[in-house]
Simulated assay, not measured.
Amino acid sequence: MNSNPHPCHATLLLVQMTLCAVAVVSQLYIPIPIMARLAEDYGLPPELLELSLIAFSLCYATGFLVFGPLSDRFGRRLVLALGLVALSIVSIAMSVVSSPEPFIAMRALQGFVAASFPPVAIAYLSERGHARQRAWGVAWLSTGFLIAGLLGQLYGGVVAGAWGFGKAMIPLIAIYLITAAMILAAPKGGQGEGALMPLLAIYRPVFRLLADPLLRRVYVPALLLLMTFVAFYVGLDSRLHESQGSALDPLAARAIALPGLFAPLAVAAVIQRWGAQRVASSGLAVAALGLFLVAMSGDQGLLWLLAASVIFVAGVGISVPGLIAFTSTRAPASARGLAVALYTFVLFLGASLGPWIARLGGAWGNTTLFLVLAACLAAVAAYSATGKGHAAR
């Protein structure tokens, strides 16, 4: 039975978990604007500098497949709280390492334990309260995950650039520990609380989940969604760099698209009426349209390009909560953590492929690259819309 916490307590917990979502996912992006300082502070040569990014992202993606299923067995609250405490300990340790190998090892461990939050938090909030509370919970969490890409880079450039990477962890650690305490203090309830089963048995439903034709209409679009998102911004940076007359900073270009990242909050108001599947396919179509307009902006100038980027980012923002909500409602309660973990794993696997896709398409030129990406998104939008299942209510 779903729990119905006091509205005030539920709101405070949702705000704190959204803040924590930003703080956790920002760990992916904080190093990007301070790569030169990291190389200096930790003695990282160029090849190890790139390895430090790869180590975090690979362990982060792998961790989804560990912690999501564990939450099905041991309960969401316990996994969330212990994961955030572990992330705090590892982040504290980041402030005492000073040489390349320990830094890379700690970043890998940091990525792994950071993965304890996103899939489990999604499953946790999708089980608490009535349908409207669940929709808003997923929407706010999705917003936190999306805006972390921008805020994490800003935090890295401003705070970590001034304090150093290790000291910049201190405010984030405070957020992790406060969130863990609030989750433990929250009333018990929801599916997945203490549902015990043999450890290996939690992975048995994976083939059943992948064989579900409706869940495949989540996982395939999820693979392409952040792949195109990351590839777009790599291509955008390239275009801004090539435009000698452009004084627009890449971070400013991202900030212009920030309103589009709040699209999940608009989705929460309509998802109960339209259904999660229709919302997801509509968002994918909007993202495809935005990328098509980006590709066509070559002769229209920078203003057209930035306006089109807002449409694209809004489409991504619409798609994410729709895909999450459909995954959470379609999967059986006993395997919901695993189903969401597969979703987040595929999502961030796509994100890790984004730079490679952008480099692969570099020889084509940005216009052709954006057209190909738009065509891919249009194809998965059509694929997502062809399912015969019931939309999430």
Results as ranks from 00 to 15, higher is better:
Glu47Lys: 07
Ala314Thr: 14
Ser328Glu: 11
Gly111Trp: 00
Arg107Val: 10
Leu109Cys: 12
Ala105Trp: 13
Leu223Val: 08
Ala257Lys: 02
Arg254Leu: 12
Gln244His: 14
Ile89Leu: 15
Ile324Glu: 01
Val85Asn: 03
Gly137Phe: 06
Thr327Met: 13
Leu369Ser: 10
Ala162Phe: 07
Ala55Pro: 07
Pro321Leu: 05
Leu209Gln: 06
Thr62Ala: 15
Leu214Ser: 13
Leu360Gln: 10
Gly361Ser: 11
Ala160His: 03
Lys188Asn: 09
Met182His: 08
Thr368Cys: 02
Ala285Asn: 09
Leu347Asn: 12
Gly43His: 09
Gly190Asp: 06
Ser352Tyr: 04
Ala252Ser: 13
Leu223Cys: 04
Trp356Met: 13
Gly75Ser: 03
Gln110Trp: 04
Gly298Phe: 05
Tyr124Trp: 10
Ala36Phe: 01
Gly161Gln: 09
Tyr42Met: 07
Arg217Trp: 02
Ala114Gly: 07
Glu40Leu: 14
Thr386Cys: 07
Tyr124Phe: 15
Ser243Arg: 13
Tyr124Ile: 03
Ala339Ile: 05
Phe165Leu: 15
Leu369Glu: 10
Ala93Asn: 06
Leu338Glu: 02
Leu248Asp: 10
Leu172Ala: 06
Val372Ala: 15
Gln27Phe: 01
Leu14Glu: 04
Asp72Thr: 05
Leu377Pro: 01
Ala379Met: 02
Leu303Pro: 00
Asp237Met: 00
Leu146Gln: 14
Ile54Pro: 01
Gln110Val: 00
Leu70Tyr: 02
Tyr233Phe: 15
Phe64Glu: 12
Ala375Asn: 04
Ala21Arg: 07
Val310Thr: 14
Leu210Ala: 13
Ala174Asn: 06
Ala392Ser: 15
